[in-house]
Amino acid sequence: MKKFINDPADVVAEALAGLAAAHPDDLRVDVSEQYIARADAPRGGKVALVSGGGSGHEPLHGGFVGTGMLDAACPGEVFTSPVPDQILAATKAVDGGAGVVHVVKNYTGDVMNFQLAAELAADEGIAVETVLVDDDVAVENSTWTAGRRGTGATLLVEKIAGARAEEGGKLAEVAAIGREVNTASASFAYALTAGTTPAAGRPGFDLPEDEIEVGVGIHGEPGRRREKLRPARELVRSALDAILEAKPVNDGDQVIVLVNGLGGTPLLELYLVYGEVATVLAERGVRVARRLVGNYVTSLDMAGMSLTVTRVTDEMIRLWDAPVRTPGLRWGA
């Protein structure tokens, strides 16, 4: 697999340096501690949001650092959670005295490392609230698994909770709206090909030309099952069935829809998918209040897409519309 890299071992550090060079006015990147912070952090009296996770999901999370969203992000190695020291350094760097919210995707490694970091931060007198994101309904939420994975809804949690923090929300309020957004969200993903990590140099799994992985996550891990490729209209309908079964939306409810590319799928196909989503939701009487189509929570170069549906209140829509200025998401500012 061909890639634009120098040495597989240096990819994350070099990409971080590049991100800093590309956004000199908005971001401050600490290459040795490995975190990305708002240039104007810490902001006294403002609740800070810190997220992080393995690299390979760009623009998540580093691309969502800026006004109205995250105060800092900690990228780990590719598909590997950041380490506690890194998360602690970022937390201390952006704490403005009003507390810090950790937005954590529900993966065993992320949960453990953020938990250790939150304990260390508490030892230093920083109040930390953790918002766990677990929206992927392809995984059964039972005692027999590590629980549902955090995927596309992470963007909505970071945007809406970030807006609440920007307008002066208190620590408990920011965390609460983040948790509400997560609870109201469900996601489902398909992969057409596996992604290739720089270190492995070969795809994480092989798929025959006519088969797809159903219910994949964002780390190249295989999905729940394989199926024959079907027309997009049928795949969308199946995904929405799973989403709406897990998180029912009633007639007249408003939703935000995210059609998210996993890194290797053209926008042409993502818009085609959005058209199918709009048709199905209209049939079911669901009002789409806002929508976002593009590559936001990716899995390196995986061809595939995920759908996220979040049932929203007027308050969430107001916060969604609030100004945001980040490398990956920008409007009104």
């Binding site: 393995g54 780990g76 190695e77 590997t80 959670s81 950041p82 380490v83 506690p84 020291d85 993966y107 065993t108 490694g109 453990m112 490392n113 250790l116």
Partner: peptide, 12 residues
């Protein structure tokens, strides 16, 4: 290991 590995295997 906790400082350098990340993932689940580092903390474990």
């Amino acid at each position: 290991l906790i400082s350098k590995v990340g993932g689940a295997s580092g903390p474990l």
